[in-house]
Design a protein around this nucleic acid. Sequence first.
DNA 1: GATAGGATAGAACACTGTTCGATCTTGTGC
DNA 2: GCACAAGATCGAACAGTGTTCTATCCTATC
Lengths: 233, 233
Amino acid sequence: MATPRSRRVRERQRASHSMEAVLTESVALLDEAGAPALTFRALANRLGGGVASIYWYVSSKDELLDLATDHVVGAVLTDIERQPASQDPIEDLRAMATTLFDAIVQRPWLGTYFMRNTDLQTNALRLYERIGEQTRRLDLTPRQRFHAVSAIVGVVIGSAMDLAQEPPPEVRDGAVDRDEYLHRWAQTWRELDPVEFPFVHEIIDEFDGHDDADQFRAALDLTLAGLRLQAGR
Amino acid sequence: MATPRSRRVRERQRASHSMEAVLTESVALLDEAGAPALTFRALANRLGGGVASIYWYVSSKDELLDLATDHVVGAVLTDIERQPASQDPIEDLRAMATTLFDAIVQRPWLGTYFMRNTDLQTNALRLYERIGEQTRRLDLTPRQRFHAVSAIVGVVIGSAMDLAQEPPPEVRDGAVDRDEYLHRWAQTWRELDPVEFPFVHEIIDEFDGHDDADQFRAALDLTLAGLRLQAGR
DNA sequence: GATAGGATAGAACACTGTTCGATCTTGTGC
DNA sequence: GCACAAGATCGAACAGTGTTCTATCCTATC
């Protein structure tokens, strides 16, 4: 005999959250399916609670994004602070930038929100400070140091922007792997008129199957080479 | 005696669009109030037609954004193609990057969508080609050329990303000018512990009242210096 | 003048961030 | 033990979004 539905008391159990849980689940959603997956409904489901509850911890979605970003930037920061200082500050800068880039490769959504608001993103500010401190070991004016840090962060962000562009769903699902995806692009470029697009045809084999990390490293190398020149080392 | 409402025939006049009009009005909306202002409703109002009509020209908002972006990139491209070639390909690269950056300064939303999809953004691809052709005048391997163009575009995008971050509404309205806005930020940084944030304190005067164009130029200089070194010129 | 297809449009749908007001829960002072 | 305030949670509703469906108009062409 089944319990009459009318008797079965709707035992609503309340969910008990915490800032930590909110941020952790937000990051999980972002990791699993990118920025569009992080909705207040989806997040509330994960937390086993109501939508409006989230607003007790966070005043808007922008703030949620900033805090979630800073949450993971915190881990990057400790990684960077663990790296032992070498003799060469420029090598240290390279290591820092590479660590940051690697983090963005693993979480492409990071690039879009990183450093958007240093007021909420305190870890990002600390990261900025750590990078800047390396430039203090170089013979530069304050203005040159300021520009150097901007340039380095810019290279990371600029390279990361390519990654943030979510590939079409068939790639995300793994139905088509990245190499195949690049190959298809390369094919459409091959069909271009070689007279009108000589450069594209020259680099098409480099593009086909290229590694984003190589691309980033090359861009960073150019900037750091310029910086080394400027600092006279 | 007023005309009875029932008699007054609703003289609905149909709107007649065109791809050109759709893109022009889209750009106008983007220019006036940034990306969030471009909605199908607002656009339909401007065109004096219905919402669904826009879908005859464009299959999604992403496509609309791509086409609108490419529409203005076309103007940038003709600007760049007008620039006479100098003796020094690196100076030509600098001029091209600067022209592109200036365009993004005037239209911050450009940075977010530029080069997102070279299939729809054919002008962006042409621009990529023009930049690449300058690298062919340098003594580099195809791979180095490929990376050089990525690096230069990356510097532009990376610097432009700072601009894309829409300032708070009080700045947009002109109630608070940019200098005042920067100054407030600088103030919050000044309150940081100087022992914990020595670098921030060192560059705080540079940040206060800084010019984004200077920042970009400095970053570009570093990359181009590195490139010059690589090409042995 | 009928007919096909280019072009337009209103209404509805599913989804979003956000707000409101009511509710439950917990701790403190008496 | 109890009242009361503050902390925390939640359902329902609201305004806004991109998108789709279906019906309509317009205009060439046979």
